[in-house]
């Protein structure tokens, strides 16, 4: 019987070396991370080799992707936000390709691993703190003191702001992880129905068409979710980076 959790297992494909009890190997996760990098290279570099003045379809894809991320940064963090363009673009490309690759059957979804999404979210979080302190010094902490709040409730507001700031990496990473995980489990469960009912003979075959239709529909939905969650992850990154650029609200 199909196990909906089995797809999230890390498999060592080529063992490399061991440190203590921890084994390092080329894993299925590593393969798909590299695939995401290679696909980004193909999309952005392979299609722009010609540097055509009037772009063809493929070059247009690269340009549209570029403009999409650039506009996202400009609309949330302003022109100064473009200093983080390489970082935001890398995040967007990595998460998008990891999400979309995962929809293909028999592949591994890198972003369904909490350690991956948490690392990326923490990277954003630490970048915000690091850049905020570097460019604004202690003025960065004005982020926690909103304007126009009466003095007597200010301590509570500051407390709430600090808690919400600290919880950002959690919500940022869990949102992506949980969406990917839940979507893939649902897909696998319905696909399991198809296989399970298929063993029951003619009646089962007839019954299996319904979950099969569901699997097709869910795959389309998951494709949407893959892009949407990559977009949301990147957009939140931009919004958080805007805080580092303009902490005074």
């Amino acid at each position: 019987m199909a196990d909906p959790i089995h797809q999230f297992e890390i498999v060592n494909l080529v063992p490399l070396f061991k440190v203590g009890s921890t084994e390092f190997a080329i894993t299925n996760s590593a393969v798909f991370m590299f695939t995401a990098v290679v696909l980004t290279a193909l999309l952005m570099l392979g299609t722009t080799l010609g540097r055509q003045l009037v772009p063809g379809r493929l070059q247009s894809m690269a340009e549209v992707t570029y403009e999409f991320v650039a506009d996202m940064i400009r609309s949330t963090a302003g022109e100064e936000g473009l200093r983080f363009f390489p970082f935001v673009f890398s995040l967007f490309a990595f998460v998008t390709f990891a999400n979309v690759l995962g929809i293909i059957p028999y592949t591994f979804t890198v972003t369904s691993q909490i350690i991956v999404t948490a690392t990326l979210a923490l990277l954003v979080f630490l970048t915000v703190i690091g850049y905020g302190l570097y460019s604004h010094g202690l003025g960065f902490f004005r982020l926690f003191v909103p304007h126009g709040i009466p003095g007597y409730i200010l301590p509570f507001v500051v407390l709430i702001e600090i808690v919400s700031f600290l919880s950002r990496p959690v919500s940022h990473s869990v949102r992506l992880f949980a969406n990917m995980l839940a979507g893939h489990i649902t897909l696998k469960v319905f696909a399991g129905f198809v296989a399970g009912l298929g063993t029951l003979g003619a009646v089962g075959w007839a019954g299996a068409t319904l979950p099969l239709i569901m699997v097709v529909a869910l795959t389309a939905l998951e494709l949407l979710v893959a892009f949407l969650q990559a977009y949301v992850f990147t957009l939140l990154t931009c919004i958080y980076l805007a805080d580092a650029l303009h902490p005074g609200h």
């Binding site: 990098v37 890398s90 691993q113 350690i115 991956v116 990326l120």
Partner: peptide
Amino acid sequence: TFPSQLIWLAICFALLYLMVSKAVL
């Protein structure tokens, strides 16, 4: 599985970042 994933993520993301900042953009 975390150490292995972290190392691969660091390698891949660093590679991606370098490629994006030096070549793509």
